[in-house]
Write a protein that binds this DNA or RNA. Sequence first.
DNA 1: ACAGAGATTAGACCCTGTTCTACTTTGCGG
DNA 2: CCGCAAAGTAGAACAGGGTCTAATCTCTGT
Lengths: 219, 219
Amino acid sequence: MRIPHAVIEAATPGPEGAASVENQPTAATAPGARTRSQLQRRKRIVQAAAALASRGGVEAMQMRTVAERAGVALGTLYRYFPSKMDLVVAVVGEEIDLLESSIQRRPPSAPTASGRAVDVLMRATRGLMREPELADALLRSLIMTEVETPFGDRMAKLLLRVAGEGLTVELATEDQLTLANSLASVWVHELLEMLRGLRTYDQIQHRLEIVSARLLMDF
Amino acid sequence: MRIPHAVIEAATPGPEGAASVENQPTAATAPGARTRSQLQRRKRIVQAAAALASRGGVEAMQMRTVAERAGVALGTLYRYFPSKMDLVVAVVGEEIDLLESSIQRRPPSAPTASGRAVDVLMRATRGLMREPELADALLRSLIMTEVETPFGDRMAKLLLRVAGEGLTVELATEDQLTLANSLASVWVHELLEMLRGLRTYDQIQHRLEIVSARLLMDF
DNA sequence: ACAGAGATTAGACCCTGTTCTACTTTGCGG
DNA sequence: CCGCAAAGTAGAACAGGGTCTAATCTCTGT
């Protein structure tokens, strides 16, 4: 798997870069995507992966199977996604896109920043719960990876946006970012507990309310 | 790896139970440990595992190698620790024990609950940082597992204890537990970011101070 | 239409976690 | 001391992630 690791070495931003969640442009590593069929290939792969993961979790999402379902060779799959993790990250990216557009369609309406944040988180929770296996797979893998445009960061930004109305990442203070980020990581943690059967939906909501009320008290 | 998964099924508390972090008693699964040499074997295994992981991370801690270094057969290793994860959990258990005794020796002295909590967290951070590879391995694996006496929970309890002086898990309110727990998960998250090179020690401290101040404001 | 570069493919291959098998040791009640 | 069940051992075997190779395809520019 080889993740940069260690306090010492900074992320090597070399020509090859690490995994990325980016959605529109070229495939993970494919240098110059001659677009068209390549984008489609990529999409087919991600779809196949999501489909497999959505029933059976990560373990069901085997690289060979994904490749087969997507109608590409294993080698090709690995050209697009250098590791299983990268694939997972891509799948997650789509999920977040979904959440973001959902929020754009129907923005949270609670009166407090904390309320809006919890609203968004719970909405995301419900979305993920529709496919517990997938959710579990994604969350776990994400925590392990979180390279480049990580899950938590995207959620944090989203939270920031809905918490302080009109607040953007650029306008927020360092500390506000920290707080939003922390809320996101608490959420991820709670979600994992839920998937493990240690929390109910209602418990998560309650816990998030408590934590959010404090973290975002003055947003 | 087979982790219970899914919102539906509750953890099966059957006769075989899941992985456990417990330190003194019998080996992970070995039914009736005839103690003596068995405890020693177990210790040798955990030590070998820790040694390997401490330089090279999880990947260096290969089951075959651990078995060899510990002087036991692969099969035996698997009898004691049904999966690599279980081994990791055991190694972590030792680390936490260390932290706990360190805290007993020299309790945090900050005047505020939040201050004491941060103190403990940073002390744990320094401890883990001594062996970044090990820390990374442990944290990642733990997040993935956290079965039975999880890392986060132990930290949460510890935090609770130092935050409210003399406060114990039994005396704490649900919400206080939630908050301590959340602080622990934020810490874990920050630690992972640090290991990934995205945070410096000072940043972590600052961020924890901010978050802790809010989460534990009235402890 | 044609050559060369890059993309794709099928499939062998390696590595490591985990399982399984056949056999030997060990510890203990009778 | 015997017998036996549990525990241990060596090592083969399996599974799935990831790599590599030798073709074959597909563009793209000329």
